[in-house]
Design a protein around this nucleic acid. Structure first.
Lengths: 215, 215
DNA sequence: CGGTAGGTGTTACCGTTAGTAACAATGGCA
DNA sequence: TGCCATTGTTACTAACGGTAACACCTACCG
């Protein structure tokens, strides 16, 4: 029968694709995000054209690779967001989940943050001003925005507000996490508390330094 | 006299360097951050090796180029931070200054956010986990941290807190700005207000959506 | 049985890139 | 005049992403 055979072929192809992705994963995690297609092909025991047949181009391979890791990270963040009872605890748990992930596997983090300049397709060749951030950040931002809009009563225009906050919070988490991972100026728990304090309006409530120009 | 002559030479060299930087600027702003060294040399009316003599490698040129724009942006942000009287107005003015800058010259913004993988030098070849962000963001974060630590009375451990907040706020501004620049979901003024609301603790104060699981 | 279609795999190449070696010309200075 | 530094060139290397052309195997189908 043609269909069942076709299905067998497809499964074999998918299995092969998965093997190639795992080889690529090993290389990227060993050599960093700039790993060459030659190196990946060699790790998989084959040569370049096969990679190109499976993934189209380097971006295709990297997008497939990033999707796996991004899905995993997103799942753990969603779990954290549903964990505790108090809002502050949930926010802290989510921040902590993100920081724990990037701390545990910095190479994965480094790869995911690498801008892969996903195909522009619709933009008219030249200047897409935005889209500078890694796709991971965009996805996290949108996801968080959805959750905020669903769970918080923000009144009229709440959806727009939720999206701004989603991207803003993710950006805060990312930048602080990146800096923290490089310099390790404090414990993870303390960083989480500091960031939650910021979100809880402590910046607005703090007193001016006596004698200064104030902020 | 040897010293004065040496000074003349140095000045000539610096002027030449400046000319080359201006040519590079034109090309990068026209062709994007991936402009080739050949293209830059051609724009300057010379050939590659001269560029390499002046700037060492591509990163050297790009770092020199980025410094000028970063200095300019930082100056305008500092001005905004000293503008109004109320803290909320200052924060809004600063956010607005940043967003105005990236809106007015998105090519410059795009170039500055391009990760230039500045020389690692001290890290032992392979894994610097952090340092993923563009140098511009690090610098903005450190600068903001300094100002916060100087002007706010945050009690013991305030310096550490200020640094976390500095990088966190800059990251928030960057991610939200990048998303906004790409999708233009609202006016600049509204984005500024939304972000300031976030920093003013409105996330913590918002009511749960009635009937939902809450956040 | 032989043909044909589709998948896997190869070698050998292309165009472009960052970066370099080797050499020529200019101009001030002893 | 001879020396030295600087500016400039041409011509190259090594590596990269990507592709064309071809060989092989296997399975279905007349």
């Amino acid at each position: 029968m043609q269909t069942s055979q076709r299905t067998d072929q497809q499964r074999a192809t998918e299995r092969r694709r998965k093997e190639l992705l795992e080889a690529a994963d090993r290389v990227v995690l060993r050599d960093g995000p700039e790993a060459s297609m030659n190196a990946i092909a060699a790790e998989a025991g084959i040569t370049k054209p096969i990679l190109y047949r499976h993934f189209g181009d380097k971006n295709g391979l990297y997008r497939a690779l990033a999707k796996r890791h991004t899905d995993a990270l997103l799942a753990s963040l969603r779990t954290a967001l549903d964990s505790a009872d108090a809002r502050r605890d949930r926010v802290e748990a989510t921040l902590d989940a993100y920081l724990t992930a990037i701390e545990a596997r910095p190479q994965v983090y480094r790869f995911l943050m690498h801008p892969t300049e996903q195909e522009s397709s619709d933009t008219e060749k030249g200047f897409d001003a935005g889209r500078q951030s890694a796709p991971l950040l965009r996805r996290l931002g949108e996801e968080l925005a959805r959750i905020i809009a669903e769970r918080l009563d923000l009144g009229p225009g709440g959806d727009e507000l939720a999206r701004v906050w989603g991207h803003g919070i993710v950006g805060m988490m990312h930048a602080a996490g990146d800096w923290w991972l490089g310099e390790r100026p404090c414990s993870r728990e303390q960083l989480v508390r500091h960031l939650a304090d910021l979100l809880w309006g402590r910046l607005a409530a703090a007193a001016d330094m006596p004698g200064g120009p104030g902020l």
